[in-house]
Amino acid sequence: MFPAPIEKASRGARITYQTMLPFVLVLWLAPLIAVALFSVRPAADFTAGNYWGLPSSWEFIANYGQVFTSSMPRYILNSFMITIPTVIGAVALSAMAGFALGVYRFRGNLILFFLFIAGNFVPFQILMIPVRDLTLDMGLYNTKTGLVLFHVAFQTGFCTLFMRNFIRALPFDLIEAARVEGIAEWRIFWFVVLPLMKPALAALAVLIFTFIWNDYFWAVVLTQGEAAQPVTAGITSFNAQFRAMYHLMSAGSIIAALPPVAMFFLMQKHFIAGLTLGAVK
């Protein structure tokens, strides 16, 4: 292990390390802790200039309660209604494409594979004008469906890269054996390969959930207003409504950030496996 394990060092070094840990962590998360503290202060503290002292009263319920009576719940619901179909769509499409690229040898295989990778590296802003037009033409501007369709298509690049590499690492003998038995190819996909892919499916699902939940650019390009906008875009109108009411804006931001955070803590192992692209095991 590198650096040398601290258990083997002197007692003094060990104690220093363990007291340093929480200290460094607080430093690292300081901007966030500040916002969390803001979110439980009463409005009066801000007018009185009491930013960093103890809150004069703890207004957790009042502040967060007010967030829930605003349009915030609507935006959060929109976010879920955009994120969940995208996750299902992108994972399904890329599992199939990854299977095709990972299992079969055919002309153009590698070119298609690199096309998906390249598309995934593109700074997506360059797609803005044509995708906005396309969405308008299909009559899907300012709908959740329009946003979902684009997200599915774009995430398919990254997901296919991931799935294909994962399938490549599976024992090919299993597929060969199934073929010898005369099992149809689509059955091999469904009954042999897919069950083995569960870790990859889970990793991608968690990761895509976070990516899509946190998307802001496409939300402002393809939607406007309460009916379709997800919470990342909604928070700006929320903030405009509660301008300079920092206790409410802080509480709103924390609520908006919560679902991916919960997802991460619940599915940590899968999340990290996804992030490292399976390349560093």
Partner: peptide, 23 residues
């Protein structure tokens, strides 16, 4: 089979990523 499995992903990707770059 590989082409049947690739078609949905390819259509979506071509429509929303490749073609818009050219556009």
């Amino acid at each position: 089979t590989p082409w049947l499995f690739l078609i949905p992903a390819l259509i979506m990707f071509a429509m929303y990523v490749i073609y818009p770059i050219l556009q």
